[in-house]
């Protein structure tokens, strides 16, 4: 099975050097824009901007692979289904046998797709250029409990391990005669003998892990220091304020044109 490696790609671009919080702010601003703005061309412009940033960060290769794999299976069927079957649509652009291309469906699909592209590309940018470890440290510096950081980072570490365990158990049970084929009911019956060892195995180590953390001062209230350092420069602060101001301005203008002009 494919183990889920981190999406993060090391790099030396100016985006990589930004404080993770700055990139996070950018992504959240784009999310707000994507939800708030209804004009297709604005959304596409945001998408192009994200692509330019991804190019600048030098992660376009990784981006294309992930992005196409994730979006194509959603975007193509969605476009076809909505264009042909959008309910309650009156304007018919073109008739092809029993199928009709519907204007409302086309518009709905285009809006949803451009929104999806705009928002998703920003998140892809974020997960490609931010090292989760740095993000947790930056959040910790801003007063977020280090326990949140522990949760996310230890989960990221645990996942490849537990996936390997799962693959091993799958093979072990098959070698004992467990069948992965057969009728639906038969396959359902095979589920528990696979799941139970994974769960029991991981819960067995639970107490030991909890105690190990406690004796290492996990619950102390003191300020933590980190072996890695994350810097918050003036440029970061300037950029963050800029993102927020620009987002609010675009939202106001967009809502104005949508409802009042």
């Amino acid at each position: 099975m494919a183990t889920s490696a981190l999406a993060y790609v090391q790099g030396n671009s100016f985006i990589h050097k930004l404080n993770p919080i700055t990139v996070l702010t950018y992504t959240l601003c784009i999310t707000l824009l994507g939800i708030g703005v209804g004009q297709i061309w604005v959304l596409l412009l945001v998408f192009v901007l994200n692509i330019l940033l991804i190019l600048k960060a030098g992660v376009i290769k990784n981006f294309m692979g992930m992005f196409l794999r994730v979006t194509l299976p959603i975007v193509i069927p969605m476009f076809i289904i909505n264009t042909l079957f959008y309910p309650g649509s009156k304007t018919i652009l073109y008739t092809l046998g029993p199928l009709m291309i519907r204007y409302e469906g086309l518009m709905f699909a285009s809006t949803v797709i451009s929104r999806l592209l705009a928002i998703l590309s920003a998140y892809f940018l974020m997960v490609l250029v931010i090292d989760p470890r740095d993000l947790m440290i930056a959040l910790g510096n801003r007063g977020i409990s280090p326990k949140v950081g522990y949760l996310i980072l230890s989960t990221l570490q645990l996942i490849p391990y537990i996936q390997q365990t799962a693959a091993r158990i799958l093979e072990a049970q098959q070698s004992r005669g467990l069948s992965l084929k057969g009728g639906l009911l038969q396959r359902f019956k095979s589920y528990l003998p696979l799941m139970a060892p994974v769960v029991m195995g991981s819960f067995a180590s639970l107490e030991i892990r909890a105690m190990a953390l406690e004796v290492r001062g996990f619950n102390l209230k003191t300020k933590r220091v980190y072996i890695r350092e994350v810097f918050d420069t003036q440029r970061d602060q300037f950029l963050r304020r800029g993102f927020i101001v620009v987002t609010i301005m675009i939202l106001i203008v967009s809502v104005y044109f949508k409802y009042f002009a």
Binding site: L151, S154, A166, V198, S202
Partner: peptide, 13 residues
Amino acid sequence: LVMMPLCVGINIV
């Protein structure tokens, strides 16, 4: 807190 990552693992597995 130790169990939560395990439960995430259970979800994925």
